[in-house]
Amino acid sequence: MLKNIQEWVLLLVIFGAVSVLGNWIGYDIVAIEAIPGMLILLGICLVGLILGEIIPGSIPSIAYVALVGVLVSMPWMPGSQVIVSATNEVDLLALTTPILAYAGIAIGRSWTDFVKLGWKSIVVAVFVMLGTFLGSALIAEAILRFQGII
């Protein structure tokens, strides 16, 4: 557990550093301004990951990470403005770029499986998007009609 925490911290710091540099180049936010926000995000991750380890049950640790993030940034939490304005300096897309860079490198090993999915995954993807869009629209239609809004 302790060894895991040490490894988490080191990897989070590496990931954070790469993201802050990408954030600087891609979104024009100078590294110095983004570092406090990044440290807050990494702290939220660490707390969530540790909670996921020590709390029994099968709820994934990212659920705790999201919960901690919401709790510390909601308006009723004292000092939340500081957290919100600091983390605003880290662009969401600056985080996705390194994730997908690592993902590309990792996908290589299962590339043949991906190719096998091929056209089938495109067909399924079309139905996935159609399903959520039509499902939500039908329910919204029913309730909006019931409420007399439309």
Binding site: L12, F15, G16, S19, I40, L41, L42, I44, C45, G48, L49, S61, I62, V65, A66, L67, V68, G69, V70, V72, S73, I83, V84, T87, V90, L92, L95, T96, P98, I99, Y102
Partner: peptide, 11 residues
């Protein structure tokens, strides 16, 4: 990395 992203979505 996704964990960091989730933290960002949380805030």
């Amino acid at each position: 990395g996704v964990t960091v992203l989730i933290a960002k979505i949380g805030v």
